[in-house]
């Protein structure tokens, strides 16, 4: 009886504690997310009248425009396709390389500290520095050196028809390791030494150790990153604006860049806000189930 009472008391205690600690963050969200963004989301069902500066209800307009752009132009399809490719490279390839690199650092193999320093460097340096330097390299330096040493003229990589997208993809992978490496090496460091020791005694090879011991243990951490990354599928601009400003061909658009352009392109004003909002909602409707699916696949949990 007493035991049960205490447990009940403890439960109540916990509930109060729970409510207390989430109250302030939730209040913050209530004000700075819900209140602030409520109208932005409703905008998807509205149109903008510039003369009276009002958004008026216009239920189907933005969605029918989306349908038209999806079915009768190549803009949306290309943007989806590019977004997916960028995602594949930054999320799948980037994550894979990050895990492998982290393992190298975790094992403290030759130069691992130096490598770690360089892998994280892009996250430390201002992105504008990296963009300027990278742009110079692929557009001026590489063609310059090739011309100097071989006498061959090469189209700058960000200009050439076939080299543009690969170069953009390379850049996005090139700068994506930082935080992942930090988190994964952190997670690997937390693996109990006895487990690895046991493996060693059994004579497990490095590859085996990596695949059978390390990866499964840090999988929850990786899963977290991948899940968070699914969400970036449609928000990633792939640095297109940093490289080209407004001057990007439709065939190279990503959804993230398209959204950015709709809202920020000079001359558009607020007229495309509603359409961008609708496009955002449609993308969320696609990304959310994908995120849940990824979560289910990676963690085996069935939570909503």
């Amino acid at each position: 009886m007493k035991e049960a009472n205490r447990k009940k008391l403890g439960d109540k205690d916990e509930l109060i504690f729970y409510c207390c600690i989430i109250a302030l963050p939730l209040l913050q969200i209530a004000i700075f997310y819900f209140y602030v963004n409520f109208n932005s989301v409703l905008m998807a069902f509205k149109s903008y009248d510039k003369m009276s500066k009002t958004f008026y209800w216009d239920f189907g307009a933005n969605f029918s425009l989306f349908w038209k752009e999806l079915t009768q132009t190549s803009i949306i399809i290309d943007a989806f396709k590019n977004s997916f490719i960028v995602w594949l490279f930054t999320c799948v390839l980037g994550t894979f390389l990050s895990i492998v690199f982290s393992y190298y650092i975790f094992k403290k193999w030759v130069l691992s500290k130096t490598f770690k320093f360089f892998l994280f460097l892009p996250s430390v340096l201002p992105s504008i520095l990296l963009v300027i330097v990278f742009k110079f390299f692929v557009n001026d330096a590489i063609p310059g050196y090739i011309l100097h040493f071989t006498g061959k003229t090469v189209t700058p990589l960000l200009i050439g028809k076939d080299s543009l997208m690969p170069t953009i993809l390379f850049y996005n992978v090139w700068v994506c390791f930082g935080s992942q490496i930090l988190i994964y090496t952190g997670a690997m460091d937390q693996i109990a030494p006895e487990i690895l020791e046991a493996g060693k005694v059994d004579g497990v090879s490095c590859i085996r150790e990596f695949i059978s011991i390390v990866v499964p243990i840090i999988l929850p951490t990786v899963a977290t990153f991948v899940i968070a990354n699914v969400a970036t599928l449609f928000t990633n601009q792939a640095n297109l604006y940093a490289f080209f400003g407004d001057n990007v061909s439709y065939s190279n658009y990503t959804i993230g860049y398209y959204l950015f352009e709709l809202v920020n392109k000079e001359g558009n004003g607020k007229t495309m806000y509603p359409y961008a909002s609708a496009l955002g909602i449609i993308c969320t409707l696609i990304a959310f189930p994908l995120t849940l699916l990824a979560r289910r696949l990676l963690t085996g949990k069935e939570e909503a």
């Binding site: 149109s47 009248d49 510039k50 003369m51 709709l262």
Partner: peptide, 10 residues
Amino acid sequence: INNSAAFTES
């Protein structure tokens, strides 16, 4: 005016 995005020069 209300469709300025469609009528920008670009």
